[in-house]
Amino acid sequence: MSWSYSIGKIGGTVLRVHVTFVLLIIWITASAWAAEGPQAALINMLFILSVFACVVLHEFGHATMAARFGVRTPDITLLPIGGLARLERIPENPKQEILIAVAGPAVNVVIFLILTIFLGGSGWLSDLQSLDNPGQSFWGRLALVNALLVAFNLIPAFPMDGGRVFRAVLALFMDRVKATQVAARTGQVIAVLFAYWGLTSGNPILVLIAAFIFFAAGAESSDAAMRGLAHRSAARDAVITSFVSLAPDDTLDTAAQAILHSSQSEFPVLTPDGQFVGFVTRESVLARPDPEFRQRPVSEIMFDNVPVVSLKTGMDDVLDAFAKGRIPAVAVIGKTGNFVGFINRENIGEWFILARGS
């Protein structure tokens, strides 16, 4: 996700913080300082950080359960509206998806029990209007927030946790793509209700959450439809076979000329005998416009750790390859191991539009 920065790595999962989350911390701290002084500002800042620590644990609950089914979580991003765990893929087994979805709220239940039973924290619904009041019990406020996280996440608004459970249950009785479409529409209806509630109550956070749910539901529905088509398609259906290539010892000046005379964003690098060794991207060349770079070989800046598939490889495997990491494209080889073309993200989108219409 753009505008997010890594702050560490836990068990193979990169923890990222979106810049707007940092701005939220600054705003809350400054507001509390101006209203009640430095002590209140410190308490409120620690409280917000504690809340998002609980959110991180919630997301790692999803990641840990997903790992049990062989699904990696490349990164978790902290946003002002919560956390976002990016799974490589969503298991198509509905029972596995249900377990992954409920694992996050289950973590908040455990935190709530620890705070109330062992730390004596107690909160009441009447305290919701003053959660930012440092005079209230710190543990009580944190326990109440975890209870709210459980209740909020189990609302059947896809793609929230409750919505994913709803989609998985539907998938037990109907096609997965159809189940996703039903769950997405339900989520968008709930999002509209959230937006109305936020506008009439003057709560901008609800409006922000509603917008996130609405657009995320649409994106998830499109992704499920793409996955449905991918099951019936192979790499040969989307491969780009007309392209300009480069040699490993070509200079960046040669690559710059290729950029000027073509519309490609990725250039395969091939040995004299046609063997694929990597990709050079338009961005990597344009990032080095100074004369001292012009005579450097493209092999110095090429991406050489990219997936290679055959023409018969299923498109679902191609989609998985893009989900696993930040790669410019996937190389496609023929029966004899010769390079025949590549697939990039733009071409996947074009393939999806045309395949859906046929």
Rank of each mutant, 00 (worst) to 15 (best):
M1A: 14
S2Q: 12
G11D: 06
T13S: 11
V14Q: 15
L15P: 06
L15V: 15
V22N: 01
Q39I: 06
M45A: 15
L49Q: 12
H62E: 03
A63N: 04
T64N: 13
T64E: 09
M65Q: 08
M65N: 10
R68A: 07
R72Q: 14
T77M: 09
T77Q: 04
E92C: 00
E92S: 13
P94N: 00
K95F: 14
L99Y: 02
A101C: 05
V102E: 01
G104R: 05
F112D: 02
G120N: 01
S122F: 05
S122E: 05
G123R: 00
S126H: 14
D132A: 05
P134H: 06
G140R: 01
R141S: 13
L144V: 04
A151R: 00
A151V: 14
I155C: 11
I155K: 02
P156C: 02
D161V: 09
D161E: 01
R164W: 12
A168V: 07
R176Q: 04
R176K: 13
R176T: 14
V182D: 00
V189N: 07
I205H: 09
L208I: 11
S222D: 07
M226Q: 06
R236V: 15
I240H: 02
P248W: 03
D253C: 05
A256E: 12
Q257K: 13
T271D: 09
F276V: 04
T281S: 15
S284M: 08
A287I: 10
V298S: 00
I301Q: 08
P307L: 05
V308E: 04
V309N: 03
T313Q: 08
V318C: 10
G325N: 10
A331E: 11
V332A: 10
N338I: 08
F339S: 02
I343S: 02
R345H: 10
E350M: 09
R356E: 09
